[in-house]
Amino acid sequence: MTAVLAIRDLSVAIRTDDGLAEVLDHATLEIARGEIVGVVGESGCGKSTLVRSVLGILPPAARVTEGSIRFDGVELTTLDARAMARDIRGRRIGFIPQDPYQAFNPVFRVGTQLLEVARWHGTGDQAADRARLIELLRQVQIPDPEGALARYPHQFSGGQRLRLRIAAAMLCRPDLIIADEPTTALDVTTQKQIIALLGALARESGTAMLFVTHDFGVVAELCDRVVVMYAGQTVECGASSVILDRPRHPYTRLLLDCHPDRAATLAGIPGSVPSVIAAPSGCRFHPRCPSASPVCSTALPPATVLGPDHEAACVLFGAGESHASA
């Protein structure tokens, strides 16, 4: 398996007035070429920080304290900001931001903003860029692509704006697209259509995708594999079908029980995601975990291989074969 993106033991800390916040704690994730990987977790689990670390757009107060991010053999954590902006962001990694309603500069025409992306990355040939963009707009099913370029963002619906953002992300034919909960702000029917479209486009072009969401329904429809995060730690990862059918980590199980389609009684998880300032020691889920034991607070358990393409980090499986890198 050749990984287009490999994140290993990534820790990110943000300086705040109240102290150091460890937003990511040894997060680990791998995406093979052409694979769609979902990252799932409650709000505040560090999903967006993970995305920003890969893109190299962490806020100024944040630092990568440990670990590595390798993109197609290039180490991104040490790459300088200039090269990151010129060669990686937008060019080799496409980005679809969170809220399509707010994702365009309101004062410029859509065409100007989309073509700008190609221009920064120095493709040079403006006519070709334009033709490529119009072709993409057709693919993302924007009616009247030529006319759409001359319109302003507020003249499009949320779903259409998201389609436009998808086109922007795909413009430079990236190897990887990162989508940060792009459909959360949309209504369910639009969301369904766009998820289907996104999946088809990614498969067709062979682009790998990192899809952040908190919706297991989206994962089931779109993702090959899924990574479950809790408070900055990777707790379980594996093929979507495996995780959805046989979740092993207590957090994944509880999270899945919150999904109305799957659980007879909506359980919910008592408590809430802890503050990452002075986060619980060891496994960060232990204060809310029904199966917690005293050991849980002492150390972060290593990821245990539970089957082909299925790992979980929990002391419950400590007896199993331990992951080499942990």
Binding site: Q98, Q102, F108
Partner: peptide, 26 residues
């Protein structure tokens, strides 16, 4: 912290471009 600034950053816009070409007109 507007989403469109994040979108620009995420697609490789440099700070000067964002400041003068995108924030200033707003």
């Amino acid at each position: 912290h507007a989403m469109f600034v994040e979108a620009l950053e995420g697609l490789g816009a440099r700070p000067l471009r964002i400041m003068f070409l995108h924030i200033l007109p707003n």
